[in-house]
C-alpha cells in the first residue's frame, strides 16, 4: 500500500559485520487471535489446519509455513505474522475469538551472527543458549525497559518485534549495544 512511513530507517544500522548484523524487516501483517476456554478447541483446530501442525503448541513456541508464522503467545492467544486479518479469522465467529489487527503496531529487527546470544544478554536476563532456547522459541521479554518479542529462526538468527512508538529509540539503543561486537 502506498503512503507508508516506516518507524525505523533501513539505513540506521550501518556497522554490521560477520559477527553481528542488525537489519530492519517489514512483515506484512501481524494479527492476534484471542479466545476463551469454550472456543479453545475450535481455534486450535483452525490454526493446526492452516499451519499443518499435528499438536497444539505450548506457549513460547512458533511454527512457520512459507512466509507465515504462528506464535503461541499465551494460553488464550496466538499471534500470526504475514497472515491478513480476514484470513486469520477464517470461519471462526466473533463469539469464538477476537481478531485484532496489530500490523502497524510493531517494527521488526533481525539480529544475525555468532554474537547474537551475548548481544541479547547485554540487556536480557534469559539464557539464550540453544539448549535453553532452541530454534522455534518465541520469547516475550523486555529490552531497555521496552517489551519485545523474540523469535529464534536459526541458531544465529533472531527477529525482534517492538512497539512502533519505541522502535526508533530501541534501534538506537541496539546499535549502541552492538558496537563493541561490531568493532574491529
Amino acid at each position: 500500500m502506498a503512503d507508508q512511513s516506516a518507524p525505523i530507517e533501513d539505513g540506521c544500522f550501518d556497522r554490521n559485520n560477520a559477527k553481528l548484523s542488525l537489519s530492519v524487516e517489514h512483515p506484512d501483517h501481524l494479527v492476534q487471535i484471542g479466545f476463551w476456554p469454550q472456543s479453545a478447541a475450535k481455534v486450535h483446530k483452525a490454526v493446526a489446519t492452516r499451519f499443518k501442525s499435528k499438536k497444539t503448541m505450548p506457549p513460547g513456541q512458533f511454527v512457520s509455513k512459507g512466509e507465515a508464522l504462528c506464535i503461541r503467545s499465551a494460553f488464550d492467544a496466538y499471534l500470526l505474522i504475514n497472515v491478513d486479518p480476514v484470513a486469520a479469522r477464517g470461519d471462526l465467529s466473533p463469539d469464538a475469538c477476537a481478531v485484532t489487527d496489530l500490523s502497524h503496531s510493531r517494527a521488526a529487527i533481525a539480529i544475525v551472527g555468532p554474537a547474537v546470544e551475548r548481544f541479547l544478554n547485554c540487556d536480557i536476563a534469559i539464557d539464550f543458549s540453544l539448549e535453553a532456547c532452541p530454534v522455534g522459541s518465541a520469547v516475550q521479554t523486555s529490552m531497555h525497559h521496552i517489551p519485545v518479542l523474540l523469535l529464534r529462526h536459526a541458531p544465529e538468527r533472531f527477529v525482534l518485534y517492538v512497539y512502533r512508538s519505541y522502535a526508533r529509540d530501541l534501534a538506537g539503543w541496539m546499535a549502541d549495544m552492538a558496537s563493541p561486537f561490531q568493532a574491529g
Binding site: G34, Q38, A77, A98, T100, D101, L102, S105, R164
Partner: peptide, 12 residues
C-alpha cells in the same frame, strides 16, 4: 467474561 483486551496505542 469472554472479552480480549489489547493495546492499540501503537497500531493507530
Amino acid at each position: 467474561l469472554r472479552v480480549k483486551l489489547t493495546s492499540l496505542t501503537d497500531q493507530w
